Structure formats: structure tokens, C-alpha cells
Simulated assay, not measured.
Amino acid sequence: MTHIAVLGSTNMDLVAFVEKAPQRGETVTGREFRTIPGGKGANQAVAAARAGATVSMIGAVGNDSFGARLRSTLEHSGVETDHLRTTEGSSGTAHIVVDDHGGNAIVVIPGANGTVDHLVPGDEGLIATADALLLQLEIPLAAVLAGAQAARAHGVRTILTPAPAQPLLPELLAATDLLLPNEHEAAALTGRTDPRSAALALLERVPQVVVTLGAEGSLYATRDAEPVTVPAPRVTALDTTGAGDTFAGTLAVAITEGRPMPEALAWAAAAASLSVQRAGASESMPYRPEIEARYTS
């Protein structure tokens, strides 16, 4: 069983389900409200654990009721939380509106995640024991950089999801093995709206790129071969929240297990296709037997 470390955010998702998302200045009536544990870091950790890896989470929650539930949810999914700090104040929250087409709009308030601006004693040692380190951008960049550089120093593969999209430090890209943007993030990073063109531009900064394309699958690009598009299963989406994190966590498992990249991408796409048919982020993520069944069907 492979070991994956995740350095990132934990949020409580406050989700409103509506027929149509409100425009600026508009009020609409929703049909349901739910509080669902999430955060890009925690989501990727849950996805990887359910896909069959040993997973350790590095991050922070507040000393509020949300924090206790976030920790419990991670542990229930098999994620080790000894390096998940508890800080004074509020846990991170994400305020999400999901429409009837499965689309979403999100406002993230960092809370305790904002305190994760450096590694604390023990974090580097944990990273050094992992087969891969998953990173995102919902905690301060200083900690993301420190984590990536610690991984590089110990020969640990780094997989970075550049979300929310923002300019990336050259030092961070230099310590990144696989960059995993969606097509919008790839465009924001390069100024190129065509995913293939964006991926090729990103290869000037990192050795491997996977651009996720939603229902169209993913595009894999590396410096020594032509880009390859791997399709995703056709499904009707109920809620796309957390689909990218499901893909990232599952892909990390597939890669560290030694699957060839096209197969790893197809396996991750199978997991993401299951998650979008269910409501919520972490709650929607499939377990390994479900992924295997969808992948082989």
C-alpha cells in the first residue's frame, strides 16, 4: 500500500442547492442546505484514502464544532490526522451555491487554514516517508513552497493542484513534478485558452502537466512525448463540487502504484465520474471497489 501525504486546507462546505444561481443583487429561493466537510486538501486526502492508499493530512482546523467534525470525517475515511493542528478560532469555510446543472460558485474563508504558513516539527519527517505529496493553494504559499521543497529534498514526488489560480513562485514550480490544473487554471497561468497550448507552455516550467477538462476527460503532456487526451465516462452530473479533488487524490494513488499514465488518468476519471453523480465533496467520493467496477465496465 502506498503512502500519500497531503499538505493543504480543511473547510466546512456550507452548500445551498438552487435551480439557478443568483446574479449580482438577486435573491433566489433554494431547495436545500447542507454542511459538508471539505477543503481541497482534505478532499484530496479522503479521495486518496478511499482509493486505497495510506494517507496523512498536514493542516489545521479551528477549535470550533466544525473543526471537530472535520477531523472526525478525515479519520472515518482512514486519513491519519496526527499532523492536523488545532488552532484558536474558526475553522475554514467554503460557501457554495450548486445549481440544477451541477455547476457551482464558491467563496472560501480560510479561517484556521491561514495559520498554516510554515512546516512545524515533524512535518518534514512525515513528508519524507511518503511516496507522493499532494499540494493545493488554499493555504499560504510559504507553506506550500516549504512542503514542496521538503519533498524534493527527500526524493518524494510532488503533485500540485494550482487552485485557486494565482501566480506561482518559480521556486515552487522548480520543486513540482506534476502540475494538475483544470482548463481555466491552465489558461490563467499561461494566458492561453487552448488546453494543449497551455499545457505545452507549462512544460517550460514543470516536467509533467495534466490539464483536467471536466466531462471531456484530461490532457497529459510531458517533455518527451506528444500530448495525450484521455476521455472520461459519460454521466449526468448532479454536483461537480470536489470532482477535481477526487481526480487528484485518485490519480496520486494510481501513479504511486505504478500504473502507466494513460491508465492512471482513466482510473482517476472513473472515480471523478462517480463523485459528480452524488451531492457534496468528500461525501461523494467513491471507494476503491466502486472505482474498479466503473473503470472495468
Rank of each mutant, 00 (worst) to 15 (best):
T193F: 03
Y287L: 14
L213P: 04
A47T: 07
A252V: 06
R196D: 12
T35N: 05
T193C: 07
N104D: 11
A143L: 01
A128P: 10
A5M: 02
L141P: 00
D224L: 03
L14G: 07
V28W: 00
A268N: 04
A49Q: 09
T81R: 04
L134I: 12
V230P: 03
I96F: 02
A269E: 04
A68C: 11
R85K: 02
E171C: 01
V107S: 14
T129S: 15
T246A: 13
R152N: 11
A186C: 06
I255W: 12
V55W: 08
A163N: 04
L219H: 03
L84I: 08
V55I: 06
L141Q: 15
A130I: 07
I291K: 09
T87Y: 12
T35A: 13
G103I: 02
G147K: 06
L160Q: 10
G122C: 11
L135W: 06
E171Q: 13
E183A: 14
E292T: 15
Y220I: 01
P231N: 07
V98I: 06
A132Y: 12
R24V: 14
I159G: 05
A272F: 07
E75H: 10
P227V: 10
L168W: 12
A237T: 08
K20N: 03
T2R: 04
P121H: 13
A153R: 15
A5L: 01
A68G: 15
E226S: 09
E263G: 00
L203V: 06
L169Y: 00
V97F: 12
R71E: 06
G62Y: 08
L251A: 05
A268P: 01
Q23D: 11
T212R: 08
G258Q: 06
E183W: 04
V108E: 08
P262C: 06
T87M: 12
L7G: 05
A243D: 01
A264S: 07
S72L: 13
G155Y: 06
M57L: 09
R85P: 02
S90Q: 10
F33M: 09
H83W: 10
R205A: 13
A112E: 11
V206W: 05
A146V: 09
I255G: 04
A142K: 05
L119M: 15
L274A: 03
A266D: 04
V210H: 01
L145S: 03
T176N: 04
G78Q: 03
T29V: 10
R234W: 07
G125T: 14
F33S: 02
V97K: 02
T161G: 13
A150K: 04
L179K: 13
G59S: 14
R152M: 12
G114R: 03
R278P: 13
E216T: 11
M1V: 09
R196S: 01
T93Q: 11
L173R: 09
L137K: 01
E292N: 07
A264I: 10
E226H: 00
L179P: 09
S91D: 02
A130Q: 08
A45R: 05
A269D: 08
E26R: 02
A268F: 00
